[in-house]
Design a protein around this nucleic acid. Structure first.
Lengths: 124, 124
DNA sequence: TAAACATACAACTAGTTGGTTGTACGTTGT
DNA sequence: ACAACGTACAACCAACTAGTTGTATGTTTA
């Protein structure tokens, strides 16, 4: 495949790592806005805002539809949910660690030959 | 206050925007690891990995405790949840938009003097 | 048709990032 | 005591980022 999950995650988090872009995303999730309408909300050039919108669009967090001379931007809630899902996977890893700790406490004499720490060897 | 919510969000998303850091975070959420143990998993210098760990630590996604000469890093699941919460707020904005659309469809003759589009004016 | 508007993109600049090597300092083991 | 280990940080470099101005192209409107 061309763009891996990690590539998409890079784009997502990089897009979200700028407060202007997060603010733009909030606005376009709440409703459609043209690029100039968005630009008027910030103390920077139109071109700067247009580039922020482009970054969000490339990351898939926002889509644009053309209506006449205007480009109406709209937030993609599915993409936001995908980011949340990835965070959920992180939480799951942590839960696994806790479960492992509980297991050790519950059955203190099993797994007799193993060392006491670092059961998570990388698979790369 | 010194560090605003937006400052923290900047740090969170910037820390998550690098795949090596995301991988480190996965490992330290699954279990404690020393910095050298982490460094051995990646094809880069120890110093590079140490800096990645420092970025995650400054963002609050990871904590370190000292044990002898080792620094044991552990993922902070609460911070991960906070990031998820922020995404949830984005989703809520979108739900508000949908609710507003439904409202318009349900009562087609109310709000007689308003224009048909863009009910979300900025408040700055 | 001409002027004003909305967008897109190229070129440039200052600051930041992700990597490197080298050095310093506390800790462990012989 | 001393060598090896684990960590931290400074200095440096190439690549990238976020902003700028300027230009080009298409769309409305007078």
């Amino acid at each position: 495949m061309s763009t891996s999950d990690e590539d998409r995650a890079d784009a997502w988090f990089h897009a979200l790592a700028d407060r202007t872009r997060r603010d733009i995303l909030r606005r376009v999730l709440a409703g459609e806005h043209s690029v100039t309408a968005l630009a008027q909300s910030y103390d920077m050039s139109f071109a700067a805002v247009q580039k922020h919108v482009a970054v969000l669009e490339r990351a898939g967090l926002l889509t644009k539809r053309r209506q006449g001379r205007e480009a109406l931007a709209s937030g993609d809630v599915e993409a936001v949910r995908s980011v949340g899902l990835m965070l959920g996977e992180l939480e799951a890893l942590w839960r696994g660690r806790i479960a492992r700790m509980d297991e050790l406490l519950a059955t203190p004499d099993t797994t007799p030959g193993t060392t006491t720490h670092d059961t998570t060897h990388g698979t790369d």
